[in-house]
């Protein structure tokens, strides 16, 4: 098999898995929420309600693809594409297992950060192009929220980089052979988790959508597959953040007995489950609380982590 064919098969495989997993996640999430809320969740279409995904897909595809006449049409159409593209691109650097992965970039971590911060354009532009007050408010919130949380998201990872001594994600995984970074980098782990949830706009940080005050926030005016793209984008985002957390803090594919791929998938799924548990249990903060939390708690914590890690690394190295 040529190298090119291998690369392409990698790309297609990962794309297919990510997409189908994102779709499956919509079912998994609802079932898990059901489990934690003493009910069933979707269980009537197909075995265990699995075909609910197909039903949803059919519904989304067959709905009227409506572009509001008052909207900024080009941007309106572009916005959902951006989010889907950027989150999928970020997947390129995720080291799934040895030999599985799209590219092995030296600056993989920076690429991930860059892509995830591009995603915010989708939300802001979508909210603005909708020309609707709820959408615009959602867009505003997204912009401020992403800006604030990205600041310490990057910083929180610097500890990991220092420990691993590389921006290459495969090197970072390899560096966790002995000890997963979630132990030495506990502060970095916590802050990255919080930032990751905020980046994925998941509850409790889903203020840009906040359906009980903003109708549906930035995607109020979206319907059919354009809404579907936002939807997929969100789930892909969840998978991405989970995968990154596994890579950066839980030793990626490393583990005994089971093949590396299985370890990666298992760890990722547990992290996703944790995200869903968050959604099931925590209320949404007020907007000012959200901002204060980022700037007054999380940012200082990250900086402290950076300083301490830096000092330890320096001391240990010297």
């Amino acid at each position: 098999m040529s190298e090119l064919a291998l690369a392409w098969s990698n790309v297609i495989l990962i794309l297919a898995v990510v997409f189908s997993f994102a779709a499956l996640l919509s079912w998994i999430e609802r079932r898990l929420l059901g489990v934690w809320q003493d009910r069933y969740g979707p269980n009537r279409v197909g075995p265990f309600g699995l075909l609910q995904i197909a039903a949803d897909a059919i519904k989304l595809l067959s709905k009227e693809d409506w572009v509001p006449p008052f909207s900024e049409k080009a941007l309106f159409v572009l916005a959902p594409v951006i989010i889907a593209v950027t989150t999928l691109l970020a997947f390129a650097v995720v080291p799934v297992a040895p030999g599985i992965g799209v590219v092995d970039l030296n600056i993989g971590l920076l690429f991930f950060l860059a892509m995830s911060s591009l995603g915010v354009y989708s939300i802001v532009l979508g909210g603005w192009a909708s020309n609707n007050k709820y959408s615009l408010l959602g867009g505003f919130r997204a912009a401020a929220q992403m800006l604030s949380y990205e600041v310490f998201m990057g910083l929180s990872l610097m500890g990991v980089v220092m420990l691993a001594g590389s921006f290459n994600l495969r090197d970072i995984v390899a560096a966790q052979e002995d000890l997963w970074f979630c132990i030495p980098q506990i502060l970095g782990f916590i802050t990255f988790t919080v930032a990751g949830i905020a980046e994925a706009r998941r509850l409790p940080f889903d203020l840009p959508e906040a359906e009980n005050e903003l109708v549906a926030g930035f995607h109020t005016e979206y319907s059919s597959m354009k809404f579907g793209l936002f939807f997929i984008g969100e789930y892909v985002g969840v998978i991405l953040i989970s995968a990154m957390m596994v890579t950066l803090f839980f030793g990626g594919w490393l583990g005994p007995l089971l093949p590396p791929l299985m370890w990666f998938l298992l760890k990722t799924f547990i992290v996703i489950g944790f995200f869903i548990l968050l959604r099931a249990s925590l209320p949404r903060p007020r907007y000012d609380q959200l901002m204060a939390y980022a700037w007054k708690v999380m940012l200082p914590l990250t900086l402290v982590n950076l300083l301490v890690t830096g000092a330890i690394v320096l001391a240990w190295k010297s």
Partner: peptide, 21 residues
Amino acid sequence: NSLKTMWTIFLHMFRRRVTIQ
């Protein structure tokens, strides 16, 4: 508090479902 909440919710996994089919 948040962690406690999450733990409580997590424990609900082992409760009986109230849904009537």
